[in-house]
Design a protein around this nucleic acid. Structure first.
Length: 902
RNA sequence: GGGCGAAUAGCUCAGCGGUUCAGAGCGCCUGCCUUACACGCAGGAUGUCGGGGGUUCGAAUCCCUCUUCGCCCACCA
């Protein structure tokens, strides 16, 4: 392609990124390739990476930016390696979260969902989803994510809903789903049951109240509680059966204060005699342990709260309708008034909070649906123990295993309206009362043909999410696609949803597809601010990825995320200083752009290939030291970067390519070949070919991280056009023939030599345009070779007027440097400075310094000062003196070396 | 209460079984708008590698311990 020499000097991603993305999408570059699917090698499985579906109405946040970037790097890498790839985008209906969003909108209109009724409300949510649901998908595009948009799914789609039904009914038929009355976590604000995982335990500073309950036969028994309001629902007291203090009381009764209920004292192993008073109040309707105790001793369960956590009509009148925390205070106050409050202690304990609204959850007795997890967990645990399923970082696997080992049944019913309604119908005819789970909607009872009523509840949103690895591919229908893309390879996600989603996908996959859905689970770190606080909307410390894309480009964002991140560590970004976080990525893109600009401006046609069967291939003997060096460095970079990508060490890959492009190619190679490019020296065509082709390789290595700028440049390189795309260009192969240890070593020596001369120049502040003479004496054969064959390069880079070999001047009269390989470099002082002027200048400076030193000596010699001034002031003055003396020494030495008159 | 990570330059982090490992980027200092790039070029300063102990010829790197942060799990009311 003819170079576009009109490229602006500053890279501007605005508009360009959009344009390139549309180009990719139009050409369907990210869809699976039927040509590869048809390939005969059955072992060549496609690469499938699982995108965690974002909440349908959510806005993109930095967490998405982080894990979408990682996923895109991985999938682009595999795609370029020639694998068929699938990265399916989709959205999750996010039951509670989405319902909450719409309820908030209704609240602004002064309405509740109950005002609308179920049908109208659900319709309203759908409307909201349709209005806002596309936004996040476009935001994902803006990051450059190369996913297959033709198969975008939504967890409430008809197909995925069919999968949900199939799974529910199948589990129900095998008694792996059951309904029952148990203590569950209840959110009084969302008005629904939650799973154990959805009730986030947080350590809280609370109180432990000790109360005395009068015994029927006189005396008291003291119990302790953190939730006094539940006393109103007490139906017993439990002590340890072997506790000598209470042995005699077992079987006796106490009278519950405030209520007057006669409650039995029972002996139960669940009681820890060492805690509190060793006696426990038993509230079967409001505590899981108490529920179990209650069952064992036939204690009634008395629910004393309403759904929104107010005291119910089951409590004495003065408490009815009170909020639980108000009731708590009131109960304490009344006990206190009765003289039955023994003591109050501070007490740290874990309090469950709703993961959606942070409300303190209430353990509550209610009828819910559950999945029996133990049989499902066993194979999922085994998959990990066998090594079939692996975690990155590895230690995360232990969390997974621990959870699987201690798994509890999963409460899947939610008292919401938005979601998959439970496919269970209850026969309304008194004679029948059959309960039917059905894959299709029922209008009549299958047993008696009587009227039926569908269960009111919907399923936990994670119930459908866990099926996505196969439901998104058309399951329960069988299809070639399903066979081709299941199981997948990699899942990249935030550690927060390890249990919510990841673990359950593994279980569901094993149960319904007989295989794990992915081999590798990469758990990212958390995005935090500089104070290491998690980025969140409520803290207001978030960074909007789209804002970053607008200001710095998607490439810069991705580079920041990838280069600043080692496996599994947190990503620290400063919301108040985007420049520090994203400037380097933008600068890097700009650097690439300018390397491209320079190369393109010197190209007027195709370049000769470095290797291949073409006749005009460049022969090895045409290559200069620098050519061989950059080719060898390029190959090293291919090996390092490829290995790093394979091992998920994306930061290593990014930094290796950065180093090659910036430090090696731009700073050294291009500087070296400029005379050849400008036609001042022969070999211009070779230099162009080498520069262009190593640049091409580096662009490909970098493409997974910075897809846009690499594409924009690559399409302009000779032989490419807009009809080509780097995103499907072949991954650069390792080339053993390029390895050239001698060139690496020798050019390294050249770099050191040039560096030494530049240091000398800088030390004497020589103007850039001014040339100097250098004399080199070396025992190093590499340097000897450099001086023989590449002296012009050294002269150019170090701005030398002459480069002499042989015995180096003694340090007298010359600036001198010794390299690690014992090479001595010297430059006549006369070349570095005007000796007379410099002597005069140094003389003046030295005199002034000596004056200051004399004054300081006087000050410190003054007894009054040293004895009266604070110690640290004197100390500081002494240090000042020492520094000045040192400086004076340096100046004298300089004068001596210049041979200045004394 | 159980389990697991982390502590390296002012900041964010590399350093993957002990011998070119004391590094990168940003920031800082000096000099440069050298016809690709000031989002740049060249040069430079900066660290008792959290404290203590141990193993070894040799430890940022292995072992023990302490301190400090963080994560996961947990029905002691």
């Amino acid at each position: 392609m003819i170079p576009d020499t009109a490229l602006p000097p500053q890279y501007d991603p605005t508009g360009l990124e959009d344009q390139l993305y549309r180009q990719w999408e139009r050409r369907a570059l990210f869809e699976p390739r039927s040509d590869l699917a048809a390939a005969s090698d059955p072992a060549a499985r496609p690469y499938v990476i699982m995108m965690p579906p974002p909440n349908v109405t959510a806005q993109l946040h930095m967490g998405h930016g982080l894990n979408l970037s990682i996923q895109d790097v991985l999938v682009r890498f595999e795609r370029m390696r020639g694998r068929d790839t699938l990265w399916l985008p989709g959205t999750d209906h996010a039951g509670i979260a989405t319902q909450n969003v719409v309820e908030k909108i209704l609240a602004k209109e002064g309405k509740t969902r109950f005002d609308l009724g179920r049908e109208m409300f659900v319709r309203r949510v759908w409307q909201h989803v349709e209005e806002t649901g596309g936004a996040i998908l476009n935001q994902i595009r803006a990051l450059g994510a190369s996913c297959d948009w033709h198969r975008t799914y939504f967890t409430l789609d008809e197909d995925l809903s069919r999968a949900v039904r199939e799974v529910f009914v199948s589990l129900y038929e095998r008694s792996l789903i059951y309904r029952g009355k148990y203590i569950i976590n209840w959110c009084p604000r969302c008005l629904t049951a939650l799973s154990n995982e959805e009730a986030e335990k947080t350590e809280t500073e609370g109180k432990l109240w000790h109360f005395r309950y009068p015994l029927e036969d006189g005396g008291h028994i003291t119990i302790a509680t953190t939730r006094p309001e539940t006393i109103l629902g007490d139906t017993g007291i439990a002590v340890h059966p072997d506790d000598p203090r209470y042995h005699a009381l077992i079987g006796k009764y106490a009278v519950l204060p405030l209520v007057g209920r006669r409650i039995p004292i029972v002996g139960d192993d669940a009681v820890d005699p060492a805690f509190g008073s060793g006696a426990v109040k038993v509230t079967p309707a409001h505590d899981p342990t108490d529920f179990e105790i209650g069952k064992r001793h036939d204690l009634p369960a008395l629910d004393v709260m309403t759904g929104d956590a107010r005291m119910s009509d089951a409590v004495p009148e003065q408490f009815r309708g009170l909020d639980r925390f108000v009731a708590r205070k009131r109960v304490v106050a009344e006990f206190d008034a009765l003289g039955l409050l023994d003591k109050v202690e501070n007490h740290r304990h874990a309090v469950g909070r709703c993961y959606r609204c942070d409300t303190v959850v209430e353990p509550r007795l209610s009828d819910q649906w559950f999945v029996r997890m133990k049989p499902l967990a066993a194979p999922a645990l085994k998959a990990y123990q066998d090594g079939r399923l692996r975690f990155i970082p590895e230690h995360r696997g232990a969390e997974y295993a621990q959870w699987m080992e201690n798994i509890r049944d999963w409460c899947i019913s939610r008292q919401l309206w938005w979601g998959h309604r439970i496919p269970v119908w209850y026969c309304q005819s008194d004679a029948c009362k059959v309960i039917s789970a059905s894959r299709t909607d029922l209008v009549a009872c299958p047993a008696c043909n009587g009227p039926v009523r569908q269960d009111e509840d919907v399923l936990d949103t994670w119930f459908s999410s866990q099926l996505v690895p196969f439901s998104s591919l058309g399951w329960p229908d069988t299809s070639d696609e399903l066979a081709r893309f299941y199981p997948g390879d990699t899942l990249v996600t935030a550690p927060e949803i390890l249990f919510f989603w990841v673990a359950r996908m593994v279980m569901a996959g094993l149960e319904f597809m007989k295989d794990i859905p992915f081999r590798t689970v990469y758990l990212t770190g958390t995005v935090r601010d500089t104070k290491h606080r998690k980025m969140s909307k409520s803290l207001g410390n978030g960074i909007d990825p789209l804002d970053v894309v607008r200001k710095y480009g998607a490439d810069a964002l991705r580079y920041a995320v990838v280069s600043g991140l080692s496996v599994g560590t947190d990503l620290i970004l400063d919301p108040d200083d985007l420049e520090t976080s994203f400037g380097p990525g933008r600068n890097f893109a700009n650097k690439l752009w300018n390397v491209g600009r320079l190369l393109l401006s010197h190209l007027d046609g195709p370049v000769r290939p470095l290797a291949g069967r073409h006749q005009d291939v460049i022969r090895k003997d045409e290559l200069s030291l620098a050519d061989r060096w950059i080719i060898a460095r390029c190959d090293e970079t291919v090996r390092v970067a490829t290995a790093a990508y394979e091992r998920f060490r994306l930061n290593d890959a990014a930094l290796a390519v950065h180093r090659f492009l910036w430090s090696d190619l731009a700073d050294w190679y291009i500087e070296v070949i400029k005379p050849r490019l400008y036609g001042e020296q022969p070999g211009g065509d070779v230099a162009r070919a080498v520069a262009t082709q190593t640049f091409d390789v580096a662009l490909r290595l970098l493409h997974p991280v910075m897809p846009f700028v690499t594409e924009a440049l690559w399409q302009r390189l000779p032989g490419h056009s807009e009809e080509d795309s780097i995103s499907v260009a072949p991954w650069p192969p390792e080339d053993r023939r390029a390895a050239d240890a001698a060139a690496l070593r020798r050019f390294g020596s050249l770099q050191e030599l040039v560096g030494a001369i530049r240091s000398i120049r800088a030390e004497y502040a020589v103007q850039p345009g001014h040339t100097v003479r250098a004399r080199i004496a070396t025992p190093s054969p590499d340097i000897v070779a450099v001086l023989r064959e590449d002296a012009s390069i050294v002269s150019r880079l170090a701005k030398l007027s002459a480069l002499e070999t042989g015995g180096a001047d003694a340090p007298e009269g010359a600036a001198h440097a010794i390299l690690p390989d014992a090479t001595a470099v010297s430059v006549p002082l006369g070349d570095l400075v005007d000796i007379q002027k410099e002597c005069a200048r140094l003389g003046v400076e030295l005199e002034r310094l000596n004056g200051a030193i004399r004054t300081q000596e006087g000050k410190l010699g003054n007894q009054q000062f040293t004895s009266r001034a604070p110690q640290e002031v004197v100390e500081r003055e002494r240090e000042k003196l020492a520094t000045w003396r040192e400086q004076a020494g340096v100046l004298s030495e300089k004068r001596r070396r210049l041979g200045c008159p004394v």
